[in-house]
Amino acid sequence: MVQDIPGTTIFDGHEAMKGYRLNKMCYSFNSKENRDAFLADEDAYCARFELTDVQRDAIRRRNVLALIEAGGNIYYLAKFAGIFGLSVQDIGAQQTGMSVDDFKAMLAEQGR
């Protein structure tokens, strides 16, 4: 896939291979038992999925742009964000460097 859209990563085979283990861990967060296990011992949980150092660091920093850069897919990352009660507006704000209120106002403005 041609990656020529600013601020956008198209999740293609290249990204899917790069992010496989990270996404597999995030997919596991569908289950409350797994979310609890992550919270109880984050290092041990990440070790089970053999994340790369870059992926482990991005998880540690809860940084969505870094997670995408490390191959994360937003649908699975949303399950990771869900552990901390973060909505798509919270992570939208984080990625755009806006406050959550400003991000919400920007969305509403597009309807006017």
Partner: peptide, 13 residues
């Protein structure tokens, strides 16, 4: 809609 990346929040009416 777009959830991911620096372009998150993109909408095109």
């Amino acid at each position: 809609h777009q959830l991911d990346g620096q372009r998150a929040g993109f909408i095109n009416k």
